[in-house]
């Protein structure tokens, strides 16, 4: 029989053994276990998301015919506007192609647009992530940019069989090379200012001293297209404050982000068509 003192300490001895076994476990096994446990719970998340879609469908069925007719008229107006934008876009693309050929420039990165439903939002002070309902089955890749109508949503960080995890632009782990709209000089953007009762904000660093921004005269911040997978010109947010950094060489400030990021139900993943370009 074990001495009484050891018997009392047995729970901690067991924990020590588990800890030791964990430390000695090869990384491949840990990665495999993580993926396995994620896939175990994935059906719960996805089923829940489909149930929400069904709920929305049935609540939409309750709309009257008058409401639907009104919505149809609004949609017709939007379609006309989009048709015009499409023509302009085609023309611009052909101009770009012509210039690329004339100047012998390398082609711009091209993407496939993959719309995906948001299955789960997980916004805390530690991290800001969401799970989308598409994964390897739709060719989603790790690092792919995720966007919505208001600009950048985030970046795909984990891809599973039929779900993917997106690290949001509001997350403290999210960093991106950006630029002030109309400028070519790059600045550094980082998320992470997520108060409980204020809309999300990010921070911006290495802003040149000749750029000014205030709450009443904010500067639009967009992706720079440098050092990453994000194409240039996508909206990040608005720089609302700028003040000199501690070294006095640059400015740092706050970026106000889109409030809709917290209620997104559908996003678009930009799947690179030539991943080797990135």
């Amino acid at each position: 029989m074990l001495p009484k003192r050891f018997d009392q300490a047995r729970p901690f001895a067991t924990l020590g053994i588990i800890l030791l076994a964990w430390l000695l476990l090869p990384l491949v096994l840990k990665t495999f276990t993580r993926a396995t446990f994620f896939e175990i719970q994935a059906p719960l998340t996805v089923t829940d998301s489909y149930a929400q879609d069904l709920q929305t469908f049935w609540s939409n069925r309750l709309h009257s015919k008058d409401e639907l007719l009104k919505a149809g008229q609004d949609m017709a107006g939007l379609f006309a506007a989009y048709d015009y934008s499409k023509q302009i876009n085609q023309e611009t693309e052909s101009d770009i192609l012509r210039l690329e050929n004339m100047l012998n420039l390398p082609p711009l990165p091209t993407f496939r647009f993959e719309p995906a439903r948001v299955a789960r939002r997980d916004f805390s002070g530690w991290w800001q992530r969401m799970i989308i309902r598409k994964g390897e089955n739709y060719g989603i890749t790790v690092g792919a940019p995720v966007i919505f109508a208001g600009g950048v949503v985030g970046r795909v960080t984990e891809v599973y069989h039929y779900t993917s995890v997106v690290d949001l632009i509001t997350s403290p782990t999210f960093r991106l090379a950006a630029s002030v709209s109309g400028e070519s000089r790059p600045v550094s953007y980082q998320g992470g200012l997520n108060d409980s009762f204020k809309s999300p904000r990010g921070t911006v660093e290495f802003v040149p001293l000749d750029i000014f921004a205030t709450r009443s005269l904010p500067k639009h911040l967009v992706t720079s297209g440098l050092g990453g997978v994000f194409p240039p010109g996508l909206t990040i947010g608005d720089i609302t404050t700028l003040e000199p950094s501690a070294d006095g060489l640059f400015k740092t400030g706050e970026v106000s982000l889109d409030e809709r990021l917290g209620t997104l139900t559908e996003v678009t993943v930009l799947v690179p068509l030539n991943p080797e370009e990135f």
Partner: peptide
Amino acid sequence: LILDSLEPVPFGTHVILLGLVHATLLY
């Protein structure tokens, strides 16, 4: 393990932290 697979923490963090709580309560 389930919690670790879902959250962006080093894999094994919850196993160890919950294990510590468990061991203390067992004690």
